[in-house]
Design a protein around this nucleic acid. Structure first.
Lengths: 244, 244
DNA sequence: CTTCCATTTTTTATCGACAAAAAATGATTA
DNA sequence: TAATCATTTTTTGTCGATAAAAAATGGAAG
């Protein structure tokens, strides 16, 4: 009834050569950022109005997203945004940690100087973003961007496209949970020093330490998020109830 | 020119409640089994005739498959079956081994008696299938089915849906390579004893041995397949040239 | 004979319309 | 009042048609 205008990223029709790709990218981004609430029903007519595309590109985009696990495709009952729950987050972290550890191990074995340079560069930016987050000056988008680039840089020399591909998907899945939570705004953790420690271990090619620190890093996030679970903001987001 | 009748699994319209799902399942099966040759262009009109569905379900199925990596979606240039090449197979095996090892480790830690029963049952069937393969009486489909069930049973108690989901996708990707090769028919390997050794280690909950044996098992397949690479049958299949 | 460009043909991506299925509504009975 | 069933409305899935893009064809010029 109360048709409040929903936010949606406009389709990028110049960077992509097909509307399906554009719809896919926009929907994906909006789901990860929480603009499309977890559990929310994705009616085609509604999406048509929001993104200004026909039903075909939308449906194709939704099928792709359902293969990734961001969207649920219920036969004859349409699509909906994948819901958030802690059990699945723990599950996700198990898979993510396994993949990340192996990718990291291989990267430390095979990484060349160019890779090292990427690591240093990404670590520098991460440092700035962590500082901005702690000071409350930087927005979440910037921080998430730096965080994604930081962890990607570490494993980027692992030599396996498939490992990287799977890792990216798992990382993005986890980002949904991070953004739904307020734990980053609380500032109880010293992310900057965690990141710095990982960087040091990586540059020293200390595989065991780098893997363990990274695992602990993710585990800490998971633990904080679990504590958040009962709290109102996350509970609301997890249930898919729109914030009035 | 010469329009030879191509084989395609008929759509199962009763087990699924949507044509997209049916087309997805049929296409997926045919790609993995090699009925749709690696690298082959998947023209919509051709698929419409083959599978007897409209373009919409087909395109949606292809989008899903492209998210899985079995199909390539080239903007404005249609779809094609993912090609086979050894570099990617090695890559695939790296990711697969990492995921499988971790899943196996967790399964050996958490598996209960019901899981043990599943392992014993799957091992029994694997034994029969291996014997059939060695004797030349069993078909490849039966063997692949038993093999998939065997390795799945081992890790089925790992407790992570995501690990299992990723594992399945990687397993199916690898199956394409196995089926494109003739190494199984050669019988140079004693698959039965390899499988038996894995089963013993798994039931003894010997994590290190089970993981190492499984990794060696996959590595041996990869090595045999690599040797196959230069040989005519595989080279032809890899290039996407139809066997006249 | 090759290279370039214009034209035709083929293939792809997208839309609007329709049929089928699910959900909502409301009437009827216990 | 609660439950069941028939009817309407909404939503989804699928098709055929069309516009746009790529590929193929062929002709002219160098």
């Amino acid at each position: 009834m109360t048709d409040q205008a929903q936010t949606a990223t406009p389709l990028d029709t110049v960077g992509t050569d097909t509307l399906t790709e554009a719809a896919y990218a926009a929907l994906r981004r909006d789901i990860i950022r929480g603009a499309r609430a977890p559990g929310e029903k994705l009616r085609i007519e509604m999406l048509k109005a929001l993104y200004d595309v026909g039903p075909t590109p939308l449906r194709e985009a939704l099928q792709r997203l359902s293969a990734e696990g961001l969207v649920l495709a219920n036969g004859n009952r349409g699509f909906s945004v994948g819901s958030l729950d802690m059990a699945e987050f723990r599950d996700l972290n198990i898979a993510r940690t396994a993949v990340e550890r192996e990718a990291l191990r291989l990267a430390l074995l095979h990484g060349d100087e160019e890779w090292e340079a990427r690591v240093v560069s990404a670590a520098y930016r991460m440092e700035k973003a962590d500082a901005g987050l702690a000071a409350g000056t930087a927005d979440l988008d910037r921080w998430e961007g730096a965080n994604a680039a930081f962890h990607l840089a570490m494993v980027s020399a692992c030599g396996s496209h498939w490992l990287l591909r799977i890792r990216k998907n798992l990382h993005d899945q986890c980002e949904r949970y991070r953004r739904a939570s307020v734990h980053l705004r609380r500032g109880t953790r010293d992310l900057a020093s965690e990141h710095a420690a990982i960087t040091r271990a990586v540059l020293a090619r200390d595989i065991a330490t780098a893997c363990d620190l990274t695992e602990a890093h993710y585990a800490a996030t998971a633990a904080t998020l679990a504590a958040d679970f009962a709290d109102p903001p996350f509970a609301r987001a997890a249930a898919g109830t729109a914030t009035a």
